[in-house]
Design a protein around this nucleic acid. Structure first.
Length: 283
DNA sequence: ACCAGCTCCTGCTTGC
DNA sequence: TGCAAGCAGGAGCTGG
């Protein structure tokens, strides 16, 4: 499911169709996803103009001229795609509805934005804009990994004394926001750090390296339009391409790509999640 | 406080 | 074109 690069790619794809556009019609086709939708969501969205389309961690935030902000989370299988009579449309010739099309926003341009989520782990909420930062889903998030407030000192402080494996620590959204299973595996491989290593036992120099590999892998993935494994699509329906550049994730049994390393990528399970790593060059 | 495991849901892949 | 088990990118909750 969508991690930070996928959500950012979707946001960028939605931007021309949504920003400074008015929602002329909102259709909400079921009462809930992971949680119930906020009361009267369709009515509250209808007529609102989207003044900005932002992102925090894996959440898309649409600021509305009604003083509210629409929070969108794609969960594991959520898609936001554009269709209808608009540039960048997805399936312009196949406007048929899917049974997992849960919310459809029709913009004043004629573009339709469809939220499709087979597994329904996604979520939407409407928040008074001044209260966005204190929303329960956002309040405890750590720094944005591509922002200025993320640096090795942040990791050093957060990891200090931590006995949990660094893999688990990086998945903790309170430490750094937006990483998921794929990009944690990739960043640790690039940094040459074992996913099993206790977070509190990584030296300063290696934390500097890790900070940089996290930034690099996320930026490259955004550049490639994200990673499409199963459900993920960009807003225009295109696949992402970063999966072709995975060095660790989903490469069990394949040769490690580190220069001069003759190791093999192994799959282990940590906290119930697959981890892919090379035990020879990740220490 | 910390951490591992379970859970929500559907659908795809794998093994019989 | 059968069936059941296992697995999947998130993240809140429970209980040790």
């Amino acid at each position: 499911m969508p991690e930070l690069p996928e959500v950012e790619t979707v946001r960028q794809g939605l931007l021309p169709a949504m920003e400074n556009r008015r929602i002329s019609h909102a259709e909400v086709r079921r009462p809930d996803l992971r949680w119930p939708f906020p009361p009267r969501m369709a009515e509250r969205l209808t007529g609102a103009r989207v003044t900005a389309l932002g992102r925090r961690s894996k959440y898309i935030l649409a600021s509305l001229d009604t003083g509210q902000t629409l929070l969108i989370h794609l969960g594991m299988s959520g898609r936001m795609t554009i269709s209808g009579d608009a540039p960048g449309s997805f399936h312009r010739d196949h406007p048929l509805r899917d049974k997992h099309d849960h919310v459809v926003l029709t913009m004043d341009s004629g573009a339709r934005i469809t939220f499709n989520d087979a597994r329904r782990f996604g979520a939407m909420d409407l928040i008074a804009t001044p209260a966005v930062e204190t929303h329960p889903l956002l309040a405890k998030l750590g720094p944005e990994p591509l922002g200025n407030t993320f640096h090795a000192g942040v990791l050093a402080r957060a990891f200090s004394g931590k006995r949990a494996p660094v893999k688990s620590a990086l998945l903790d959204q309170r430490i750094v926001a937006g990483l998921g299973n794929i990009y944690v595996c990739e960043a640790l491989w690039r940094a040459g750090i074992s996913p099993m290593r206790q977070a509190g036992r990584i030296g300063q120099a290696r934390l500097e390296t890790l900070t940089q590999t996290i930034r690099d892998v996320l930026a490259e993935a955004i550049e490639a339009g994200g990673s499409s494994l199963r459900d993920y699509r960009q807003a225009d329906g295109e696949l992402g391409y970063f999966q072709h550049r995975f060095a660790a994730y989903d490469r069990e049994g394949q040769p490690c790509r580190t220069q001069d390393c003759d190791g093999v990528i192994e799959r282990i399970v940590q906290s119930g999640r697959s981890t892919f790593h090379c035990r020879r060059c990740q220490r």
